[in-house]
Simulated scan of single mutants.
Amino acid sequence: MNAHESPRADAPLDAREREYLRSKQIEVWPQASFAINAALFVSMLVVLIRSDEAFSPWAWFGFGALMLIALGLSYTICRDQLDLRADLAAGVKRWREGTVARMWSHDDGESWPPGYRIEIAFDPGDDPNANPPPGFSVYWHCYETVRLGDRVRVAYSPKSHYLLNLIDGEYEYAAPQRRLDPHPPKA
């Protein structure tokens, strides 16, 4: 970090970072999500009304619970996509410094490779009103290189929280420029 750079600074996205964020967009889903839920609602309502259990309170409770879950999922996906589009429109990334506070991987036993995430505890005083991202997805090489307690500098998209860059001493991880190194074979 240069002497004139602050620990928390916004910088413009470069062409590769813009392309990387665009690759995370789901073009059809946000618009079609509510239409899919409406079709699901109508079909479930028809099935419920035509069944022998049409007036059972438990049937209506199950129907309502299913609809709330579907709408919640649609809302979350739509909100995430709107945040991603807002980041692309703003064209900035946020640089912050902190410490690797937590690392975890998720292996469901069926798909390979597992997912890797790291959580950064940002330095206090940067922006007391900002909510730090809950964690960043990284590739296995980055996960294997950084350690708990390492001082890092990260760049991420401010609203959608995609990690763009991580610097840990001499090691630099740039998500948009990553080379997809083969993952070690499953043990």
Rank of each mutant, 00 (worst) to 15 (best):
G62V: 04
Y75Q: 05
K186Y: 07
D150K: 06
I167N: 06
G125R: 10
A9C: 03
A86V: 07
P176R: 03
V154E: 08
D168G: 08
E27D: 13
Y75T: 15
S111I: 02
K93R: 08
L163E: 01
G64I: 02
Y162P: 00
D10M: 14
S23F: 01
R117L: 05
D123C: 13
Y75N: 11
V92F: 06
R147S: 05
F34M: 11
Y173M: 04
F63S: 06
R102I: 07
V46R: 09
Q25K: 13
E172H: 02
F55I: 00
M1W: 14
A86N: 15
P113K: 02
V47E: 10
L21Q: 01
V100P: 01
A155R: 04
A121E: 15
A59L: 13
S51D: 15
Q177G: 00
S6N: 14
M44D: 01
D108W: 03
R8I: 05
L88Y: 08
P113H: 02
I167D: 10
G64C: 10
P30Q: 04
R18T: 09
N131T: 11
S111V: 00
L163H: 01
E144N: 13
F63Q: 05
L180M: 14
D87Y: 02
R117G: 01
E172L: 10
H141T: 07
V146Y: 12
S157M: 06
R179Q: 12
P133R: 06
F122Y: 12
A155E: 03
A187N: 10
F41N: 01
A70P: 05
E144H: 11
Y139I: 11
H161I: 12
V47S: 08
Y75E: 15
Q177K: 11
A187K: 02
A39S: 13
F41H: 08
Y143M: 13
R85L: 15
L180N: 14
D150M: 08
P57R: 01
A121G: 07
Q31Y: 13
V42A: 10
G135H: 05
D107R: 00
S51R: 08
K93S: 08
G62K: 03
K186I: 03
E53C: 05
N2W: 03
F41W: 11
S51C: 08
L180R: 08
G149I: 03
G169C: 04
R179H: 13
A59T: 12
L68D: 02
V42H: 07
L73R: 02
P114W: 01
D107E: 00
A174G: 03
R79K: 14
D80L: 14
Q81R: 07
E5V: 02
D80K: 13
R178V: 08
W104K: 00
V146F: 13
G169F: 05
R117D: 09
P128T: 09
S157P: 02
A101I: 03
Y116M: 00
D83E: 14
I167M: 06
E27W: 15
